[in-house]
């Protein structure tokens, strides 16, 4: 793509408590309108990288110790999270992090509050989210903590969408959800990308489902980039499938016992 990248991580190194390195020299690009999958096992550094992008790393006692991250051409290090949200960079946290005692609708409204939307904008955005996730519209008065995992994930995504993002970060959206719910959620995200050109960066352990919807993928292992390429290439490369994606070798049948 010829556009300037929306997100550019250059040589990023991340440490927690000044000692434990979670990410070493990782570079990554997300262009406008692109869906990029950030793959890797637990502890590979995916969440750390996303936290660094949203500049919430400090809340987990982490710090970018090298390199830089540019969102829309300017370094995120100098911007507070709330400023980044206002500039269209929203994240759906790992583990969903809904406000459990707040109703589904109040959860969505906090997203509008974070962006500083007017009342009119807020009403329009609410309708937009409800059209995307009709089940949340039905449950709008119910405390988020009482809803199912899938519905909570939809609320978390809806809350991020209330900020009218240009780049949406998602950290393990499939975690703990049934495959059919995961397929539904990824379907909606793909639709947002297709219809509205929303750029998406998804960190996922579930490589199969992530690569089905992504344009490109980046595989992290122990804090470094182990492989990168288009989704088709990553899906088809046997060594990558076996080593990082848990998909098994395409040409070898699993041994039955």
């Amino acid at each position: 793509m010829s556009h300037a990248p929306l997100l550019a991580a250059e040589d990023v190194e991340i440490a927690y408590d000044e000692a434990i390195f979670a990410v070493r020299r990782v570079s990554l690009l997300v262009h406008p309108g692109e869906v990029v999958a950030l793959l890797g096992a637990n502890g590979a550094g995916k969440s750390s990288l996303l936290r660094a992008v949203s500049n919430i790393l400090h809340a987990q006692r982490g710090r970018v110790t090298h390199g830089r991250i540019l969102y829309d051409g300017t370094s995120v290090a100098g911007s507070s999270t709330s400023r980044l949200v206002r500039r269209g960079l929203a994240q759906v946290l790992e583990g969903r992090h809904c406000f459990r005692h707040l109703s589904a609708e109040d959860n969505l409204l906090t997203g509008a509050l974070g962006r500083g939307s007017s009342r009119l904008e807020t009403r329009r955005d609410l309708e937009h989210v409800y059209a995307l996730f009709p089940v949340i519209a039905e449950k709008r008065r119910v405390a988020a903590g009482l809803l199912s995992g899938g519905q909570q994930q939809m609320i978390a995504i809806g809350r991020a969408l209330m900020a009218r993002p240009r780049l949406l970060l998602l950290d393990e959206p499939s975690m703990g959800l049934a495959p059919i719910v995961v397929a539904e959620i990824f379907g909606r995200l793909a639709r947002l990308n297709r219809d509205e050109g929303l750029a998406i960066l998804i960190a996922e352990q579930n490589a199969a489902v992530a690569l089905r919807h992504a344009h490109r993928g980046v595989v992290l292992e122990n804090g470094i980039v182990a492989a990168a390429g288009t989704a088709e290439v990553l899906r088809s490369k046997d060594d990558i499938r076996a080593a990082y994606l848990g998909l098994g070798r395409a040409n070898i049948q699993p041994v039955s016992t």
């Binding site: 949203s54 919430i56 994240q91 946290l93 406000f99 707040l102 906090t110």
Partner: peptide, 23 residues
């Protein structure tokens, strides 16, 4: 009120409130 909603959200989950862009 909006301030009240922000109060309740921050009361519930500071990390999520920070990530949502609340100041």
């Amino acid at each position: 009120t909006r301030l009240g909603l922000a109060f309740r959200a921050a009361a519930e989950d500071q990390y999520a409130a920070l990530n949502t862009g609340l100041r």
